[in-house]
């Protein structure tokens, strides 16, 4: 285990922690709030739009500042996605994700943070989500999906 890898992992631990605080404070860990946000044609609760607004406003600026550097502080190179294609997989996958998000009121981050509630529902959701990821792997092994 390299020292750099250990530092990367400790950064990731801190990032996960701060991210979870953001999710909790913002209301993203409350499924009824998430469903209320998506309930545009019913009793719409727009408050969660400000989560994206806050996060994007910060990162629009920091992304540009950080990418001026030749490399990250603890890695020799950048690992930022470069795929620009709008593929059927992108659209179909996002569609399925959106339906599941509306049905369960959880996206992946809040679901894992909500494991700390020790309630059964987030645990059932996370286990099912992991099964869904394995199912994709099985399908992809056969179809070799172009992402």
């Amino acid at each position: 285990m390299g020292n750099a890898k250990m530092k990367n992992a400790l950064v990731a631990l801190a990032v996960g922690f701060v991210f979870a605080l953001g999710l909790g404070i913002s209301g993203m860990t409350q499924p009824s709030k998430v469903v209320g946000f998506l309930d545009v044609f019913g009793s719409w609760d727009p408050s969660l739009i400000f989560v994206m607004v806050g996060a994007i406003l910060v990162h629009l600026v920091t992304y540009r500042l950080i990418r001026r550097r030749a490399s990250p502080l603890l890695s020799p190179e950048w690992h930022v996605p470069t795929n620009k294609r709008i593929t059927p997989a992108l659209v179909a996958g996002s569609l399925l994700f959106g339906v599941g998000w509306g049905l369960g009121g959880f996206c992946p981050g809040p679901a894992m943070t909500s494991l700390a509630s020790l309630d059964s529902r987030p645990a059932v959701f996370v286990v099912s989500m992991i099964v869904g990821m394995y199912l994709f792997k099985l399908v992809d092994a056969k179809l070799k999906i172009q992402k």
């Binding site: 369960g104 959701f125 996370v126 199912l135």
Partner: peptide
């Protein structure tokens, strides 16, 4: 919901 979110 979990299956859809994981797969999707």
């Amino acid at each position: 919901a979990g299956l859809l979110v994981g797969f999707g």
